[in-house]
Every structure is written in structure tokens, then in C-alpha cells.
Amino acid sequence: MKFGYVILYVPDVSAAVSFYEQAFGLTQRFMHESLQYAEMETGGTALAYVSHELANSNLPDGFQENSLSARPAGMEICFVAEDVSSAFLCAVEAGAVAVVEPKVKPWGQTIAYIRDPNGILVEIASPM
């Protein structure tokens, strides 16, 4: 078995793709003609988006939607960047909400946190 996808549930797939292209320089790999599913090129594991509409059809008992007005869900996605401060500023300029400014952790790694326009928690970290 291999890890294949991280899928984020978002209200607007096209807007999520646009944000991640602007904020992190990712490239769209696939967008379904329905605009309810898309994938980004990230290397070995795809980052994908599913519309709330499609997610609700897949999960008939519902799910907890991400929202900037609520606390972040108990998970995050992480992007590794050589220059965490620049990546952090780029994400904020693209519409992210700053959560934790870049800081060096005791083990020497620099990390920062933002929330994307959908409220999803994103860590930006230097390589280990």
C-alpha cells in the first residue's frame, strides 16, 4: 500500500486551486469538468480538492466543514520551503490568514502556520 492523496473539502474547488497556485506555486494537475474535483502536482502524493457538494454525496451522514470562523480541524497540511519567511509572506499576500509567524524550534527547524481562505491549517516548514 502507498499513500496516494490528501483531499481537502472546500466550497469552491476552482478558488482553492487558484489560492494554492498563488500562495505556494503549485501547478494544477487535473480538474474535472464538473469543477467539483481537482488535483495539484506536489510530487509523490497528490493534494486534491473536493467540493462540499460532492463530499456530502460521498458522506451521507455529513462532515465538519472547514471555516475561518471556527477553530482549525485537528489536522494540517505542510509544505517544506527553504525560505519559510518568504513562503509565509507569499501565502498571506495571496489571501491566507497568519496564525503563527515563522520561528525556529528547539530542534533547529523553522516553522510557521497560516490558514487558507477555507480555514484549513497549513504549516510551512524548513527541511529537517
Rank of each mutant, 00 (worst) to 15 (best):
E76R: 12
E76A: 12
I7S: 09
S18I: 07
E82V: 04
S69F: 12
D83L: 10
V84E: 04
Q109Y: 07
L54P: 01
E41Y: 02
L68D: 00
V13E: 08
L8K: 03
A98Y: 08
L89A: 12
K105Q: 12
E39K: 01
A38I: 04
F79V: 07
N118C: 11
M31V: 11
D12H: 09
S126V: 04
G62F: 13
L89G: 03
S86R: 15
T45I: 13
E93G: 07
A91T: 09
V104W: 00
F88K: 05
W107N: 05
A87P: 02
A91E: 10
T110R: 07
S126Y: 04
S67R: 06
D12F: 01
V99I: 13
D61W: 15
S14W: 10
D116V: 06
P60T: 12
N58H: 15
M1Q: 07
A87E: 14
D12C: 02
F63W: 10
A48C: 09
D83W: 12
V92P: 01
Y37I: 02
E82M: 04
I124Q: 06
R71C: 01
G119F: 09
M128A: 05
I120Y: 14
P72V: 05
V92C: 12
A87R: 10
V104P: 01
L26R: 01
V13P: 03
F24K: 08
G74P: 08
T45A: 09
S34H: 06
V104D: 09
R115F: 02
V99A: 05
E21R: 15
S67G: 07
Y113E: 11
D12W: 05
S57Q: 15
N66A: 11
V100D: 11
Y5K: 08
K105N: 08
Y20F: 13
M40Q: 08
F79R: 06
G4C: 12
Q28K: 14
A48H: 06
Q64G: 01
F3M: 10
T27R: 12
V50T: 15
N66G: 04
D61M: 15
L47I: 05
N58D: 15
L47H: 01
P11F: 06
S57Y: 14
